[in-house]
Structures are given as structure tokens and as C-alpha cells.
Simulated assay, not measured.
Amino acid sequence: MTKTMTVTETQVAQQLFDAYRHQQPLNMADLANQVPDEDAAYRVQAALTVLKNQPLGGYKVSLTSEQTQKMFDADAPLYGAQVADHFLAAPATVRQSQLMDPLVEVELVFKAKQTLTAEDSLTDLFHKTTVAPALELPDSRFSDWFPDLPKNLVVADAAVGGLVVYGTERDTDSVFDSVADVATPKCTLVHDGETLKTGVASEVLGNPLKSLHWLVGKLASQHKQLTAGQRVSSGTFVLPPHLTVGHWQADFDHQLGSVQLEMTND
């Protein structure tokens, strides 16, 4: 990824930041041709992150299933940088006005216990991280974005990053018996007592640790690192429904526990 921003890319980053700050959605058709490729999209995302002027809390990985890759005409995942205060410890309360057009996903969140490098194997990552159950709330600065937002605009918009609500964090190698075991957790997504979705971790590139491994390698290719304390929302177990007002709960097996979220009318 080259480091030189074009004038157009700088302008797109500013428009995204203004939409983020004022909660005023953009029209995807207005910007679709201004971010022509993935490298340009990541440059815009990096500039947007700088404009936010907040500590970097970590990343989210998107398009981690065959189904979502097909929806966005992609053949690989993508990532979005997330500011620190967008990672919330459960149980959490979120006001409707905090987000624009959010979805809700169930995920595993990994936290680096030390700097992770492209040389790390899946086994290394297994020992160098904590894991927690999570609800991720993807959100976009574009109106009517899901599932029609062009992939490059998804990347530019911090991988449609919203909020991540995470549960109890424990050493990954104490929760699971092996790397392969990380692919086996199941989860149920419940809204106001009604079960909406069930999913399994293997939906995430076959194993969520592979999502983390992909991210570390992608960051290295851009001369970046995942450092100690940063978190990664690794990909959804289910095709996400829209987030609506009420009580949301994700229940995981493997003694991972539950994550609870209250969405209020402000």
C-alpha cells in the first residue's frame, strides 16, 4: 500500500469523518467511483482513523464467510481500525442515537497479550491471546448500506465499524484444548427472549484464529503491527439482523458465557 494520498482520497476521508461526527449519512453513489481500489480504500481508512484523533483499540475483520464474501463480491477478508472507546465491556447499554443503521453479529474477540507478528503460527496466536464472547454492532456512514455498499467503500468506512461489546476475557489456551477446538463454539442470538439466530465459530474462515492470522499478516504487509492490549473482533458466526431497541443476548458454549446488551430509545 503506497503512502501517498490523493486529493480525492483526502476529501473522501473528511466526508466520512464529518458523517461519523454528525451522524449524517452519505449517499454511496456519490463516492463509489472515488475509491477505485483496495489500496486507495485502506489509505482513506487510515486518514479517517487519524481524523478521529483517539487511541486505537484494535480492529474488526469482515467478510470472513463464503456467504458474505459473495455478497460483497470479494475473495478475501478485509479489516477496519477501531478506536478504543468503541470496545465496550458487557453488560452494556447503547442508545439508538449513538449509531446510524446498525446490525448485530456474534463473534469471538481476541486480545493480544504481546505484539503479534506475521511469523506467528496459529499455535503461537493461540498462546499469545485472550478470548472473549462478543456482540459486534456493525454500522456505516452510508444510508441503505447493507448489503449493497461496494467493497472499497466498506474498507474506507473502517469496515463499517460501530461498537463491539465483549464478555469475560480469558487466556485462549485455557478456554480451548487446541487450535482446532477454537472452531467448535456454538452461539445463540436472542432478542427480547426470542431466539433469532444460531451459529458456529467455523463459519469464520473455518476457525476464528485464521481470521486473526490473516489480519496480522495483512497489517504486516502495510508496515503495521497488532500490539499488546489491542483487541480483534474476528468475524461473525451468523448473517446479521438489524439491531433494534430491546434486550440482546448472545449465549456461547465452551463456558465462554453470555454477552448482554440493552439498546434504548435514547
Score class of each variant (00 low, 15 high):
V155W: 09
S174R: 15
V204M: 04
G167S: 06
D157I: 02
D177Y: 13
K186P: 11
A158K: 04
E194R: 15
T188D: 11
S202C: 15
G161W: 11
L189T: 05
V160I: 15
V200E: 05
D177F: 14
G206C: 05
N152G: 10
G206N: 11
V190F: 02
A183S: 15
L163N: 01
T198H: 10
D177S: 15
R170Y: 03
V164G: 10
V175N: 00
D173V: 09
A159K: 07
A156G: 03
R170V: 14
L189C: 06
F176A: 09
V154I: 15
H191D: 14
A158P: 06
A201L: 10
V182W: 00
V179L: 05
A201C: 10
P185A: 12
D192Q: 15
V175A: 09
T195W: 09
A156W: 06
V200S: 10
V155P: 02
D192R: 04
R170G: 05
V160K: 01
E203K: 13
K151A: 07
D171P: 12
L189W: 04
A158R: 02
V164F: 05
D192G: 00
V164N: 02
K151S: 05
P185K: 14
D173G: 01
G193Q: 09
D173T: 05
S202D: 13
Y166W: 09
T195Y: 07
G162I: 04
R170D: 09
A158T: 04
P185H: 05
K186Y: 12
T184Y: 04
F176E: 08
A180E: 05
V200P: 05
K186H: 08
S174W: 13
H191P: 08
D157V: 05
V155G: 02
L189H: 11
N207D: 09
L205M: 14
V175K: 07
L153Q: 01
V164L: 11
P185F: 00
